[in-house]
């Protein structure tokens, strides 16, 4: 196995494109090392991105949004008070990943690029309308987070594409977001269903919303019908019913020992309702 520690994303991209055989990038390694250990993925080339300057940084962008370095761990994200104040839902999704030990290493980008339909940080990023900056062979481009997952373990990234940053838009006034998942065990378990919602209010009325679900389809999914059910409402019972119906209609889950398809679909609706209430009270500035 070749091991590289490039000092720029351009170099990382070039090395990945030139490598023959199986290539993996190394962020926190909490998926890559488990896969190497089990023998499911034995890379011929491993490219550690953590020596690239800026990969450990969380910075506010000139427009008031955020740029998160690709090597920022869950623990570092949770320690950043200003980011937590802006995007509590994004951070709480990442903080659900694994144990304290896993939090010390695991990253948003790794969670996204590992391509698990149950990746806990991805619904929150999708709801927040986050995007990723990709450095590829032909230059740098920006792509919405929801366009990255292509199916279990698969992404739309091409050989030579490396994500060089995560961009979260400015929170702006009267916004709130939240994420919840259902797991059989409280900690250290994989989501059976998950839901993230980001919304904005004007007084009591919801003016903008984005709803994303996890673990109930081959990829994390944005559900525009569910957002439409919320927009224009005051989160009354009719809006909640329409939200729950739209979320359940978007579910196409697997049936396995951890949850039947019927159960996953049902729970996704329940989570959507709870998450909508939390996001709504955060948007209105009520303590949550």
């Amino acid at each position: 196995m070749d091991f590289h520690t490039p000092s720029s994303f351009e170099d990382a991209s070039k090395r990945a494109a030139e490598a023959t055989g199986l290539t993996r990038f190394l962020a926190g390694g909490t998926d890559v090392l488990v896969q190497m250990r089990s023998g499911t993925v034995l890379p011929d080339t491993l490219i550690d991105l953590k020596h690239i300057p800026g990969t450990q940084d969380i910075t506010r962008t000139p427009d008031g949004g955020w740029r998160i370095g690709i090597a920022v761990s869950g623990a570092r994200l949770g320690d950043h008070a200003d980011l937590v104040a802006d995007w509590p839902g994004v951070v709480e999704g990442m903080e659900l990943v694994g144990s304290t030990q896993v939090q010390g290493r695991a990253t948003l980008v790794g969670n996204l690029c590992n391509g698990s339909p149950a990746a806990d940080s991805v619904p929150g990023l999708v709801a927040a309308q986050a995007s990723v900056e990709i450095t590829g062979l032909t230059g740098v481009r920006t792509v919405p987070v929801e366009d990255i997952p292509a199916g279990p373990g698969k992404t739309t990234l091409s050989p030579g594409d490396v994500i060089s940053g995560i961009l979260i838009p400015p929170r702006g006034a009267h916004g709130g977001d939240a994420y919840q998942r259902f797991t059989p065990r409280t900690e250290m378990d994989i989501a059976v269903a998950g839901c993230a919602i980001s919304l904005r209010v004007d007084g009591d009325t919801i003016t903008e919303a984005r709803v994303a679900v996890g673990a109930v389809a081959p990829t994390v999914r944005l559900v525009p019908d569910a957002a439409a059910a919320l927009i224009g409402s005051t989160l009354d019972d009719t809006a909640i019913d329409a939200l729950v119906t739209a979320v359940r209609a978007a579910c196409n889950p697997i049936d396995d020992k951890r949850g039947t398809a019927e159960f996953r679909t049902d729970v996704a609706g329940v989570l959507a309702k709870r998450v909508a209430h939390i996001a709504y009270s955060r948007a209105k500035g009520d303590a949550q």
């Binding site: 091991f3 190394l26 926190g28 390694g29 909490t30 090392l33 488990v34 250990r37 761990s73 623990a75 144990s99 304290t100 030990q101 896993v102 010390g104 290493r105």
Partner: peptide, 10 residues
């Protein structure tokens, strides 16, 4: 200073 699992790091 950060707690990690040493089996998850090279």
């Amino acid at each position: 200073g950060v707690l990690v699992s040493s089996c998850l790091m090279l």
